[in-house]
């Protein structure tokens, strides 16, 4: 009963935050709304008895990726995006796409709810750290290694991207000040 109420609470919150993310023109408001979606999805994972995935969701998405995104928004000091008039057809395209996808979703829900209800055995939990760790380092060893190599490649790639070709030497104001003072004393 409690988990049902929690599910509908967080599901509503997630949908509201997602809509507000698309609606807001200001990238920072979008980012905050997206963090709301991530947090409510983490709570839904908890009602699905997947605590490890829920916590990793908060740690990776809300705690790392979105912090980086907000950092970039603050660093670039982005303003609201301007209304471009020459891309009107995109709104029609997006609306059509949305309607098609919604119809597809309705069809999936209808089809799944017609099949006999899959009963959950509440004693069987597969989301504990032990289960995930065991599966990860036995059956899924090769994919985990590949993901590790991919993350390394991402690190190298982002360092190459962030490096300017001719790195200007960092000069500190205080050093110049000291130089000036010593010159004054000498002269």
């Amino acid at each position: 009963m409690v988990s049902t109420a929690l599910f509908f609470l967080f599901a509503g919150f997630a949908i509201m935050c997602a809509i507000s993310m698309v609606y807001h023109k200001n990238p920072l408001y979008s980012a905050i709304s997206l963090v709301g979606v991530f947090l409510s999805l983490a709570c839904i994972y908890l009602t699905l008895a997947a605590p490890f995935i829920a916590i990793v969701q908060i740690l990776v998405y809300a705690g790392a990726i979105m912090v980086l995104v907000v950092f970039v928004i603050m660093l670039l000091n982005l303003d609201d995006e301007p209304n471009t008039s020459r891309l009107k057809y995109l709104y029609a395209l997006g609306g059509g796409l949305g309607i098609v996808l919604l119809a597809q979703t309705l069809f999936v829900v209808y089809a799944v709810s017609r099949t006999p209800n899959q009963a959950i055995d509440p004693n069987v939990t597969v989301g504990n750290t032990l289960d995930i760790g065991r599966a990860m380092y036995t059956d899924y060893l090769l994919p985990v290694e590949i993901v590790g190599v991919m993350l390394l490649m991402a690190i190298v790639g982002s360092v190459v991207l962030a490096r300017r070709l001719s790195q200007p030497q960092l000069e500190l104001v205080i050093d110049k000040e000291e130089e000036r003072i010593s010159e004054e004393i000498n002269s």
Binding site: L28, V56, I58, V70
Partner: peptide, 25 residues
């Protein structure tokens, strides 16, 4: 007593930085 206590603490701490960042912005 939750199964992923250490990760819980780390993740909530990392969400806490939003308070400071949003205050600054």
């Amino acid at each position: 007593q939750i199964d992923v206590g250490v990760l819980f603490v780390l993740s909530i701490t990392s969400v806490g930085v939003y308070g400071i960042m949003l205050a600054g912005w």
